[in-house]
């Protein structure tokens, strides 16, 4: 490989990371604005022009706040688990199917599953090591929830892989040329949507940080930098989940502005759900994962296998 190619790849990586960080910053602004208008009030509208600079002032505030050293905490794991979660969410973003200047993963979906499964450990370690009852309970809940939704997530992913018979994320675009998979695999795509809501600990299933029960859940002891990293990791994984929804069900990756508009729309859907639905009950959440999504995804896996065999 020529040196120039390597330079271009690193430049692409740098642009990707800066894009993720700025994108996450503005998604927080979008979320606050949309939640504000859902609750019939204005969101942040003072900093800069109509609140344009709000995310940057938030970031500066977060990074200059005081860092705490909780008593009896396991400080090394307390310090490193936000960093690890941020590393993992950036690593997942390497999967974005650029046509050029980035790595092309032939087994991209396996890479995605590996990174998302590792995300559980950071939450667990962050909850356990900060030596607080609330954090421990939030971490336990988050682990059980993420684990049980990961099974149905992987099975739903499996049935859409069976449709394309490849692990490469680029192939989704080829197969969805005429009809989107959201229509072809209709109830299953909505199952994927709510499973990804649960996988990223979003609001109808946000038991990891239930504000009214556990004050802030697993990240309660975190202040400035650690909290900022956890926050960035969560939002970039939400953004990646909406990217994956578009890749798998809404037409795949294409070099057009429509792709990014669809991405923002799916993220808006995440916020909309947060603004509308109340929190679920924990045992119902578990029943939803094990007694409804798992049998549905298994049965549909069988169905799509037969469907594909008919087509092959």
């Amino acid at each position: 490989m020529f040196m120039n190619d390597i330079y271009m790849i690193f430049l692409g990586l740098l642009i990707l990371i800066i894009g993720i960080l700025v994108g996450v910053a503005y998604l927080t602004l979008l979320e606050r604005k949309v939640l504000g208008y859902i609750q019939i009030r204005k969101g942040p509208n003072k900093v800069g022009f109509m609140g344009i600079l709000q995310p940057f002032s938030d970031a500066i505030k977060l990074f200059t706040k005081e860092q705490t050293y909780p008593n009896f905490s396991n400080y090394l794991s307390y310090y490193f688990s936000p960093i690890l979660s941020f590393i993992l969410s950036l690593m997942i973003w390497l999967l974005i199917p650029y046509y050029f200047n980035m790595i092309s993963f032939n087994l991209g979906i396996l890479f995605f599953l590996c990174c998302t499964s590792l995300g559980v450990y950071t939450v667990m370690v962050a909850g356990w090591s900060s030596n607080s009852n609330y954090a421990l309970l939030g971490g336990l809940r988050a682990v059980a929830q993420t684990i049980s939704y990961e099974v149905s997530l992987a099975l739903i992913l499996m049935s859409s892989i069976i449709m394309i018979m490849d692990f490469n994320l680029m192939m989704f675009f080829v197969y969805q040329n005429y009809v989107w998979f959201i229509i072809l695999m209709f109830p299953l795509s909505l199952c994927w949507m709510s499973s990804s809501l649960a996988e990223t600990n979003r609001t109808p299933f946000d038991f990891a940080e239930g504000e009214s029960e556990l004050v802030s859940g697993f990240n309660i002891e975190y202040s400035s930098g650690g909290f900022a990293l956890i926050f960035l990791a969560e939002y970039s994984s939400i953004l990646f989940m909406s990217l994956l929804f578009i890749l798998m069900y809404m037409g795949g990756f294409s070099l057009s502005i429509i792709f990014y508009l669809k991405l923002v729309f799916i993220f808006f859907l995440f916020i909309w759900v947060r603004g509308t639905l109340p929190r679920y009950r924990y045992d119902k959440l578990m029943y939803l994962a094990w007694k409804s999504y798992l049998p549905i995804s298994l049965n549909f896996l069988l169905f799509f296998l037969g469907f594909k065999i008919l087509l092959l």
Binding site: I17, E66, P82, I83, F86, L90, G225, G226, L229
Partner: peptide
């Protein structure tokens, strides 16, 4: 990058 971000916040924090 992520280690530098955490380290920066520890240095900068008041």
């Amino acid at each position: 990058i992520s280690n530098i971000m955490m380290f920066l916040s520890i240095i900068l924090s008041k």
